[in-house]
Design a protein around this nucleic acid. Structure first.
Lengths: 206, 206
DNA sequence: GAGATATTAGGACAGTCGTCCTATGTGGTG
DNA sequence: CACCACATAGGACGACTGTCCTAATATCTC
């Protein structure tokens, strides 16, 4: 098996485990077992556990960036793009109810650990924030664009946290509906333009 | 020093440390150092680390319950009580920006650890949820009371997570203002303006 | 096929963890 | 003062952690 392949397998397994069990709680042995390689062999591909975390964060960043690019390609209307973002919590409702938001929970954990990779993980939030800001700007709300972007992020983080805590799917749908109604006030003129969310958009967050 | 006093000191120190560093990341040695007692002496007061966690959760529950009771005593208007709840993120903005929400972060961590005390920690969420539901019911929104309570919780969790991630105080104030505006539609009678607004007219703010 | 390189396996290492045991010290009661 | 339950200290324990080292194996080049 090529080194690049093994490395990718490690990152993939670590990504899942960090998400489901947390970074600190995930041991080298656990990742090794998931990838079916020996513990000692890790250090041929990564020089430390923090190094794996860095690779995982980079992979998540790239993945989300790709997702956003695709949305831009598929959806001409900025309001439709924002709606897609809001729908993430529906698309990934199962994972979210089970494990929370991969961005929010990782950032919170790294902050508590005082981990140096906190800044890199925060880049995921910044990525979404900037992208949402751009969409609101295109909608003509240049002045409030950043505040509106933060409000949408607030929504998604709040929903993810509580859907996780209460394992409540109906709650997700209610809050998403509320958010769509709220967004209506900011996407005037494009009413009825874009229908909501194709089924295969997924691979999104959480 | 009395046993009860020492026990209280342990719980207090553990509470702080669990909040700031997380439960798993906080070692016995760290708590011992904070309380200035020896490691081995812990097991005279608690039979395990989980036992300390249980005491911390119980203490937090009692503390929050006391807080809510006091609000009920000081504030006759249910709308005012809800506003007090919303203001938590302002009152505790320093801690929230530094460490996030004590309820949300603990619940998330325990879920990832698969810790048996997850249910007990979830009781904190349930406490707030029930209390908020009661206030909305008293405001005459019996039907939607629970959904409205969950919406307020969503707000507070989202704000706490992002204020923590971005360390942004202005953001907190903006979201709180938005929330107060939204609440205005549901607190008829106290605020002057006020016809009842259907659930999906949440775009109160702009 | 031989040799060099890339990749893997498995154990040794020091450190830390939660837990437990036992001896020491304390304070109040007869 | 002697006594005894309460409270504390400090170290020993096995298990686990991330890290590192070295030998064995696979893969590719000539």
């Amino acid at each position: 098996m090529g080194a690049a392949t093994t490395r990718a397998h490690i990152v993939e397994a670590a990504d899942q485990l960090f998400y489901r069990q947390g970074y600190e709680h995930t041991s080298f042995a656990a990742i090794a077992e998931a990838v079916h390689i020996s513990r000692g062999n890790f250090y041929y591909h990564f020089k430390s556990k923090d190094d794996i975390l860095g690779a995982v964060i980079a992979a998540r960043l790239e993945s989300r960036q790709r997702m956003l690019k695709q949305w831009e390609a598929e959806e001409a209307d900025p309001a439709g793009r924002i709606r897609r973002f809001v729908e993430i919590v529906v698309t990934n409702r199962v994972d979210i109810q089970n494990y929370g938001c991969p961005v929010g929970t990782l950032t919170t954990e790294l902050a508590k650990l005082g981990h140096p990779a906190l800044g890199a993980a925060g880049g995921l939030f910044t990525l979404f924030r900037s992208w949402l800001r751009e969409q609101f700007t295109q909608l003509g709300h240049r002045e409030q664009a950043d505040a509106l972007a933060m409000h949408v992020l607030t929504f998604s983080q709040g929903v993810a946290t509580l859907a996780h805590a209460f394992y409540d799917e109906d709650f997700i749908h209610r809050e998403v509906q509320r958010m769509h109604d709220w967004l209506g006030a900011y996407s005037a003129g494009t009413e009825g333009a874009a229908p909501v969310v194709p089924e295969d958009c997924a691979q999104a967050d959480a």
